[in-house]
Amino acid sequence: MNTSNDLLPHALQHAPLIARVTPPLLTAALSVSWARDETEVREAQALRYQVFAVEMGARLSPPKGAPAGLDVDLFDAYCEHLLVRAGGMAGEPGPVVGTYRVLTPAAAKRAGGLYSDTEFDLTRLRALRPRLVEIGRSCVHADHRSGGAILALWGALTEFVSRNGMDAIIGCASVSMRDGGHFAASLWKQIAATHLAPIDCQVRPRLPLPVEHLRQDLAVEPPALIRGYLRCGAKLMGEPAWDPDFNSADLPLLVRTADLPARFRRTAA
């Protein structure tokens, strides 16, 4: 049986790039901090379950023995987990309403690769990988998607990459396919027209979304999390991958630290 310490995220026990020493960042009634123990990681996983499984209908495949009601996968143990909390009562921490997980280059080596490797051929990013941070499992509670929680998450992320000397951030931004994929295909077409990465940073999906069989002419508004990427100077690295288990299309996005807008660079300074 695992002890309590065995269940702590591997990155929090061993990684040299520790972000939790940063004082919590305050944004209006929201507070941002890094998970310090198993209990706080479980709070993030519970929010992920609510958003992905309950709200989006994802078919999760947690490791054997994982508690019910949590979104848990094998990468969690190697990641730092960023939390946004709503205001609490009487000095008590409020509920987790937003989260990202962060996989550093050193932790990715221990994990055997990036999560993005399971969805995309990242061969062209080989030169970036020693200073490439992966973010993922991003979600925000439905009551907090107006922008404040996402800005708070990105403020902490940019501070983290600057503090640790990282050159770039990679992530897979998920788009629901409840309409059969037409929204996702149209969003891909729209973003690619203005934010496509140069050829040396483009990747290929292992299971492509069949965009050629879907409508690509819908007038669509990017979801809030993707708008957060684009505000930070993200580039789209290629066509979306299809994730049947999460019933989503995943857009591969890359943010170079040097391309961050001035307001985020000031946050990270």
Rank of each mutant, 00 (worst) to 15 (best):
13 Q>T: 09
32 V>C: 15
6 D>V: 02
97 V>D: 04
32 V>W: 06
193 A>M: 04
91 G>Q: 05
57 G>N: 08
40 E>K: 03
108 A>V: 00
3 T>H: 08
72 V>Q: 03
149 A>S: 05
34 W>P: 06
159 E>P: 02
204 R>I: 10
234 A>I: 01
185 A>K: 10
162 S>I: 08
160 F>K: 01
146 S>P: 00
41 V>E: 03
122 L>T: 06
264 F>N: 02
180 G>R: 13
139 C>T: 08
153 L>W: 11
16 P>H: 14
2 N>R: 12
153 L>D: 08
70 L>Q: 14
70 L>S: 05
205 P>Y: 12
256 R>V: 03
195 H>K: 13
179 D>Y: 13
14 H>S: 07
263 R>P: 01
206 R>L: 15
12 L>M: 10
198 P>C: 02
23 P>Q: 14
107 A>S: 15
197 A>M: 10
89 M>Q: 14
66 A>N: 00
46 A>T: 05
121 D>G: 07
151 L>T: 15
9 P>E: 04
225 L>Y: 00
223 P>K: 10
263 R>S: 14
56 M>Y: 13
22 T>G: 01
182 H>Q: 12
5 N>W: 06
138 S>D: 01
258 A>C: 03
222 P>K: 09
265 R>I: 04
224 A>C: 00
236 L>V: 06
250 D>R: 07
187 L>C: 04
143 D>C: 09
79 C>V: 02
85 R>N: 02
236 L>S: 09
251 L>W: 03
213 H>T: 11
221 E>P: 01
141 H>S: 15
100 Y>P: 01
85 R>I: 02
162 S>G: 08
233 G>H: 07
208 P>K: 10
108 A>H: 06
40 E>L: 04
92 E>A: 12
167 D>F: 06
12 L>S: 02
21 V>A: 13
139 C>W: 06
